[in-house]
């Protein structure tokens, strides 16, 4: 009886007993949800255009952030380093397309997926080889990200919003809007959607697959860089981020592999759910439940709606 009370009643009593704390928890969840959504966005971009499930997105985030910090530590001004890092991500995109994707056209999805795992390992090795394995500080102040925090009086308590988190949410929103514009209003965006729909049909109307893939990987690289900066500013730049980035998988499951709004909504659900569960229920289970909560939610969700919230329904034929 007491267990039931602890599970079903007590957390809600706590929630409504201290609404200011609840608001704080929700805000934290919202911020981490934004970051999950950003990583998931990188996955969705590549999956939409090439059907490749890019496992390397997580390490691309780390790699981009490390390159930025590394270039800055060479004595470059922050913005020059930023531009150069974008260049490096472009180079990475082109070489991935040239050396990996182009050779694997028409292979089964699972082979392409495993190739991206190989890419992940390669980038881990390369990143550690060049920049060393120890965690680094993101150059957030130098890039003009605001520090400090804002306090609000709510429900008789104080809600503290870090300016940097607000900036993260704004940047994420801008990025999503830009991507949406790019996908639906520009010529290249239409070509991207054509490729996503049907490779062969796209080829036959004169769209260059290779070029499109390079562009998509580049776009994913830029999303990775943005994620790396925002995440790095929140904690630090380290390879541990790569495991956290795996959380984008449950986000994708919830949102569907092909949907940009899905990635955002999924990110929010996971981010908020995770924080709420950790704070209000985690104690009952000994804490640290954040590490698996997202996956278990996705697992339960999958049993009822395998194509995700916004995904296209999968129709199987023999």
């Amino acid at each position: 009886m007491e267990t039931l009370y602890n599970i079903f009643i007590d957390p809600f009593v706590q929630m409504f007993g201290a609404p200011d704390f609840l608001m704080q928890v929700l805000w934290e969840g919202f911020v981490s949800g934004t970051l999950y959504a950003l990583i998931a966005l990188g996955f969705v971009l590549i999956f939409k255009a090439s059907g490749v499930f890019n496992f390397a997105q997580g390490i691309m985030v780390v790699f981009a952030a490390l390159t930025l910090v590394g270039l800055y530590s060479l004595g470059m001004p922050a913005y020059v380093a930023l531009v150069l890092t974008i260049g490096v991500m472009g180079l990475l995109a082109v070489s991935v397309e040239r050396l990996v994707m182009r050779k694997l056209v028409n292979q089964p999805d699972i082979i392409l997926f495993m190739a991206t795992i190989g890419l992940t390992y390669f980038l881990i090795g390369l990143g550690e080889f060049i920049f060393g394995g120890e965690p680094k500080k993101m150059i957030a102040d130098e890039l003009g990200l605001p520090g400090g925090s804002m306090d609000f009086e709510v429900f008789g308590g104080v809600l503290i919003l870090e300016n940097r988190d607000i900036a993260a949410a704004v940047i994420a929103a801008v990025l999503v809007a830009a991507l949406w514009f790019f996908f639906s209003k520009t010529r290249i965006g239409r070509a991207l959607r054509a490729v996503a729909d049907d490779h062969q049909a796209a080829l036959s109307v004169g769209i260059s697959l290779n070029q499109i893939w390079a562009i998509v990987w580049f776009a994913a690289g830029i999303v990775a860089l943005a994620t790396g900066i925002l995440w790095g500013a929140k904690s630090e730049v380290s390879f541990a981020l790569q495991v956290v980035a795996l959380k984008a998988l449950p986000v994708l499951i919830l949102g569907g592999f092909t949907s940009i709004p899905g990635a955002i909504v999924g990110g929010m659900i996971i981010g908020l759910g995770e924080k709420l569960f950790e704070i209000y229920w985690g104690g009952l289970m000994g804490g640290g439940v954040e590490s698996w909560f997202a996956y278990v939610i996705a697992l339960i969700f999958l049993l009822f709606r395998p194509q995700g919230l916004f995904g296209e329904k999968i129709i199987e034929r023999i």
């Binding site: 050396l99 990996v100 050779k103 694997l104 292979q107 082979i111 495993m114 190739a115 795992i117 190989g118 890419l119 992940t120 390992y121 390669f122 980038l123 881990i124 090795g125 390369l126 550690e128 080889f129 394995g133």
Partner: peptide, 19 residues
Amino acid sequence: TLEHINFMIVGALIIFFLI
């Protein structure tokens, strides 16, 4: 360093073999 090189070689070999 060897560990890092090992990672790179394994990753590259995975891709190489898949291709």
